[in-house]
Nucleic acid binder design. Structure first.
Lengths: 219, 219
DNA sequence: CATAGGATAATTGTATCCAAAATTTGCTCT
DNA sequence: AGAGCAAATTTTGGATACAATTATCCTATG
């Protein structure tokens, strides 16, 4: 529970959050231009905070900005997606290994609770944010803030396509199974099994994202 | 040879580059405030591009910005530096392994040439940019743009302290030896040796950076 | 008819100006 | 004299206005 916010919201930061959600929701298709004036008018602000928010989203890998030319939702190439998933396996594998011995009764119950909530969620954005929350709880005990930030950063540019792919019912079962197996492996302290399940989980997600990314938004 | 720049420079982007260099050169000590007005006056521009440049440098991890309070050079905690070096070993180890089989006569000659230039450089910024160039040439054949970008990102917040530590003559010899050994291991295609030398190289650098970071700029 | 050239419009980047927040200064009261 | 509070100054965040660059459309020409 947060008492005093460390970084009191500024127009640009809340705008960035709103735009993040709008992008994940698929408001702009990859390649489509985000017009500063239009966004400014829509949110009732000037173009200055809009520009700062767009720059922020660029640094997160969601947008590509060309000078004097505009910002557009990035569509990673298949090769780049492969690379991102390889990096995720490196970073998340390390986080998982370090978190293994540090989980306790409470953190495991929290994991199970998050997974329950995740399976109850019925909208795409809820799944994505729930999945992020689950993995953050999974890696949290490692106490590696920088690696955790990197985990978020590596997900950001592809979650948009994962959300697209997680339409009605698609692969939700296998997804949930892998999460349950991860919890079990962590509870048992089985590093090998955990690593193996994580790898399988990421491979499956990679395939889904690749399909969604190549299939959508042909501009 | 570049004919037409893909991204024509804008005031904010050249300012960001200038400020990057100024920070690496130690113009501001960690914790010291960077005043927008002062920087704007100094470079003869308004505060708008200054703010955008500062935001960019924040996203690179060089600065920490608090709302209405100002930007200051970040001083990572020892624990954070440890984590950054662990991540570097993960990412650079992967890059090195992937690049190993892809080096050829020309790329090896280029590596040797860069190392020669590096040993001739006589100022701190030259060493740092030379070291970056060397490692980029070392990992380049892996053809992993995203990992290479991550390599730069993981270095950025600590290079400032590496530059500080690389004062007159300090550890330059061991540093050069490790680079030469890396070239030899790559030429021989010896993955184990290359990995081992890289690990040793990063451990040594970590110690230097930790010492420089904790010892300097007590604000 | 396709295309090169140039004027016009649309859009981004930057400067100037105003508002909000924080830091500093100086005063009061104990 | 020192702690606490309030006005003044400083500094940052945002809005408006202007300049620079790019995109569009129209015309003229081979």
């Amino acid at each position: 529970m947060i008492i005093a916010p460390l970084a009191p919201a500024t127009t640009a930061s809340v705008l960035a959050q709103r735009l993040r959600e709008a992008i994940d929701a698929g408001r702009w298709s990859p390649g489509e231009l985000l017009r500063q004036e239009q966004i400014a008018a829509e949110y009732g602000v000037s173009r200055i905070p809009v520009r700062e928010a767009l720059a922020q989203l660029q640094s997160e890998g969601l947008l590509e900005i060309a000078h004097y030319r505009g910002a557009r939702v990035s569509r990673p190439q298949a090769q780049e997606i492969d690379e991102l998933f390889d990096l995720r396996l490196l970073v998340e594998g390390d986080l998982l290994a370090r978190a293994l011995g540090r989980h306790d009764q409470r953190s495991l119950r929290e994991l199970a609770r998050l997974q329950d909530r995740l399976e109850d969620a019925d909208d795409r954005l809820g799944w994505i944010s729930g999945d992020i929350a689950f993995h953050e709880a999974l890696y949290g005990p490692a106490e590696r803030p920088r690696s955790l930030a990197l985990f978020r950063q590596l997900r950001a540019p592809i979650d948009r396509f994962a959300a697209q792919a997680l339409g009605p019912g698609a692969r939700k079962q296998g997804w949930a199974n892998e999460h349950r197996q991860l919890i079990a492996a962590v509870a048992a302290g089985d590093a090998m099994a955990a690593r193996s399940i994580l790898e399988q989980h990421l491979q499956a997600t990679r395939a889904v994202v690749l399909a969604a990314c190549s299939g959508e938004g042909e501009n």
